[in-house]
Design a protein around this nucleic acid. Structure first.
Length: 582
RNA sequence: UGCCCUGUAGUGUAACGGUAGCACGAUUGACUCUGACUCAAUUAGUCUAGGUUCAAAUCCUAGCGGGGCAACCA
């Protein structure tokens, strides 16, 4: 990539795997409650010791970090116990679903590093089987066609404090039910005319058991089955049977399906099928983030973000574009654990996970975000030094590269201060700092514009300090990064901050909209950044550490004419923390 | 005036009637050609009240707090 043949390819090693297991060793780790269930099942010989899980998204949106938790759980369990994990699309609602989502979901699961092999299933592939099951239920008097309208049905369902009332249609004969149901399938009725319901108990304290709907009429085009169906099964009628037919042993879902478990079991038992165990765990909540598909869709559609893969979004595609590695996301999911209690993980955990990973695998490079010209008065006009710089401070296998140095360099604006406090280790008039890998320089003065802004810093260098060390071994506390002005490559750098200012943006105070807490400064675009020449032509997706500035990833929009970087995350910064604390 | 689930350091999770641990953070120090990394140390916890027990985070009762359930969504 770089123009200099002596360089090792600093970009290509960006995806070099971290040594050691970034996800942490499982040895000696205590078991989460699901692993305990599985191990107990294996001890008793349930399912012949088999472990078979599944990840069952509805293709109605892009996957996000919360799905990643579920993916890591389901595929991880299969891996840990020598079992299998399926990918299944829960595509029973044609009006909300699309192949765009089917494709992106597969891409994201693969990118995360998981493989369903030949076990890709669609609930829609089982519409016929599910239909036959429904006829069986009708024949056994366990289901009936109801013809109440929506409002009637709602009214008769009762409330959490009041029992529901039986529908007048509840006593229809098996023959009539079968006839009506077949005609529903045949397309004789308009949307909403009838539904098929299970006959359970309209007074049940669990609302889900008050004669739940199995089928609704929907004359809609399905992204897979086309127009061959006009009745579509509901989630509850679909999910457990699909689990069962796929031979799933442990059907893991989030807590909001807890009350559905009674129904799940009821259907499987009446049908006499293999009985997977539904197990619920707490979904992931992240501070300063919204995770509902509805809200994310609204952000996308109202152009408050650039798309599903906006680097500020919690989507897998957003995180990928932001520069996250799959390993870091898996490590994050591992670190947050699995439990049944609702909780909120701080957004900083995600940053910490990517820092840990990139620290090991990202080559170091120098880039100046907000340039300030530094002129080295005693350095000859036409001279250029080629200085050797390590691509990684702790891993020699990354090799070295050569960085050109000349009389004028750019330094970071914040690395110069006229009135500097004692503990400021950077440049100020009369003070000496090290230009990383280059020379020690001492500031002699500044040039200001009419308004008094510093537009140039002057200094002298110690020719004896080439490479960064003085012959007399004098200690220089500060080391700053730089880029040779005449060799610099221009770049656009996009800095990201949290999307919301509210820790829990979903908790909206009355009279406000959840979008009111959007952070207006979540994106800052720096158009005039300067990076070292080795970065010219860096491929989209390549990750670097800009020393002292953070981790950066070449954006998909980057071209050879115009480099564009996304800042994945900053480095930890105890200096600015110290500043803000005092 | 229902049913179900759930309360452990700041955060996330362990402890399965028997020593309350771990991770992340925070703080301090060491190291340092990244105020990064690394290393060391420190910090801080069982919602409340009763009860059972030799022994309770764990079991029981009551209270308090959080979440879910009344789409022809998943």
């Amino acid at each position: 990539m770089g123009p200099r043949p002596e360089n090792t390819s600093i970009g290509s090693s960006a995806d070099k795997p971290a040594d050691g297991n970034v996800a942490g060793s499982d040895e000696g780790r205590s078991l989460n409650f699901i692993e305990q269930i599985i191990e107990a099942d294996q001890r008793t010989g349930k399912n012949d010791g088999r472990v078979h899980t599944r990840f069952p998204p509805e293709p109605n949106g892009y996957l996000h970090i919360g799905h990643a938790k579920s993916i890591c759980l389901n595929f991880g369990l299969a891996e840990r116990y020598g079992g299998l994990c399926n990918l299944r699309f829960d595509d029973t609602n044609p009006t909300k679903e699309d192949v765009e989502y089917v494709d992106s979901i597969q891409e994201d699961v693969k990118w995360l590093g998981f493989d369903w092999e030949d076990r890709l299933y669609y609930a829609s592939d089982r519409f016929e089987e599910l239909y036959q099951f429904a006829e069986r239920l009708i024949e056994e008097g366990l289901a009936y066609v109801d013809s109440q309208d929506l409002d009637e049905m709602r009214a008769n369902r009762g409330t959490v404090n009041e029992a529901g009332k039986d529908s007048a249609n509840r006593s229809r004969s098996v023959e009539e039910n079968l006839d009506l149901f077949r005609r529903m399938r045949a397309g004789e009725f308009p949307d909403g005319a009838h539904v098929l319901r299970a006959k359970i108990d309209m007074t049940h304290p669990n609302m889900l058991m008050r004669d739940p709907l199995l089928y609704r009429i929907r004359h809609a085009h399905h992204h897979r089955t086309g127009d061959s169906w006009c009745i579509y099964p509901m989630y509850d009628w679909t999910h457990g049977q699909c689990d069962s037919l796929e031979g799933i042993t442990h059907s893991i879902c989030t807590l909001e399906f807890e009350t559905h478990r009674a129904l799940y079991d009821w259907f499987i038992e009446r049908l006499g099928l293999h009985h997977p165990q539904q197990i619920e765990f707490a979904r992931l909540n992240l501070s300063y983030m919204v995770m509902s598909k509805r809200k994310m869709l609204e952000l996308v559609e109202s152009k408050l973000v650039s798309g599903w893969n906006d680097p500020r979004m919690p989507t897998i595609s957003g995180l990928r574009r932001r520069g996250f590695t799959p390993e870091s996301i898996r490590a994050f999911c591992h670190r947050i654990g699995i439990a049944r209690m609702n909780s909120t993980v701080d957004l900083s955990w995600l940053e910490q996970a990517i820092r840990d990973d990139l620290n090991v695998r990202a080559p170091r490079v120098m880039g100046v975000l907000r340039p300030l010209r530094l002129v080295i008065e005693n350095y000859p006009e036409d001279q250029v030094d080629d200085l050797e710089a390590a691509n990684h401070p702790a891993d020699e296998s990354f090799g070295t590269r050569s960085v050109p140095f000349s009389r004028e360099v750019y330094i970071e604006q914040e690395d110069f201060l006229e009135d500097a406090p004692k503990k400021y280790f950077r440049l100020s008039i009369g003070r000496e700092v090290r230009l990383r890998y280059a020379y020690l320089v001492t500031c002699t003065g500044v040039v200001k514009d009419d308004e008094g802004n510093v537009i140039e810093v002057r200094c002298t260098y110690d020719p004896e300090s080439k490479g960064g060390n003085a012959p007399d071994d004098r200690k220089v506390k500060g080391t700053i990064h730089w880029v040779s002005a005449k060799h610099a490559v221009d770049a656009e750098v996009r800095l990201y901050d949290r999307l919301f200012n509210q820790e829990t943006p979903e908790d909206v105070p009355e009279g406000q909209d959840w979008k009111d807490s959007l952070n207006p400064d979540s994106l800052e675009v720096l158009g005039g950044a300067k990076v070292e020449p080795a970065l010219a032509g860096a491929e989209p997706g390549t990750r670097f550490q800009f020393e002292r500035n953070g981790y950066f990833c070449v954006d998909d929009a980057s071209t050879s004419e115009c480099l564009v970087f996304n800042r994945t995350t900053t480095l930890r910064d105890s200096w600015s923390k110290q500043q803000s604390n005092s």
